[in-house]
Amino acid sequence: MDLTLKIWRQVDAKDKGKMVDYKVTEISGSMSFLEMMDVLNEQLVNAGDEPVAFDHDCREGICGMCSMYINGEAHGPDRGVTTCQLHMRMFKDGDTITIEPWRAAAFPVIKDLVVNRSAFDRIQHAGGYISVNTSGNTQDANATLISKKAADTAMDAATCIGCGACVATCKNSSAMLFVGAKVSQYALLPQGQVEAADRVRNMVAQMDLEGFGNCTNTGACEVECPKGISLDNIARMNRELMKASI
């Protein structure tokens, strides 16, 4: 298929940036979206132009690196996928595709479609862990009894890959689905109880400090999340913070 691409080009963090039109031809429906981007970049390099910078790593939907706001949706029009898992068969011959970086004050653009998501790392550092001695005398994992339901729900929360689609999608650029998932994965397990109050207080404080917006419960994040992280995690985080504050 032949496509017109409208892509955000920005030389560096200080550059104002603009949308630039490109044409790509003979794109197969079996290609992933990133492979289509590779074709475009090969074309640009051969013509002596600067290739489009975009984040990617594993290309199998697990690392959370690939971003891109495609035709007005995080990771494009498909559900439960990252951009590397998005197939070109989702588009039609002759389509115009708009490709932009994640837009949030807390995710500044580094170059073209690459944004700085270090804010998520700093939120994790503020409390997204449990303090366990790992040098010698490591306890057997099965020694602590955990109900199947709690283990499953915690695991569901832990499948968050920190891609930032929730922030990009949210009309308020809120990071509450991400922080809710990271708080929940520990709040549901006995190992997470010891630092539970400090964890939620510190992570929420860091989230606010980073300049993310306030959640207004539109639910867009849950729909666009490639891992299907549930809004229940935000409700649980709200409960955890209330519990920690009273």
């Binding site: 409208k6 706001y69 035709n71 007005g72 949706e73 999608t169 867009a220 729909v223």
Partner: peptide, 11 residues
């Protein structure tokens, strides 16, 4: 965003 499809994921 230059193009944003809010109707795709929220009311």
């Amino acid at each position: 965003y230059a193009k944003n499809n809010g109707a795709a994921n929220s009311s």
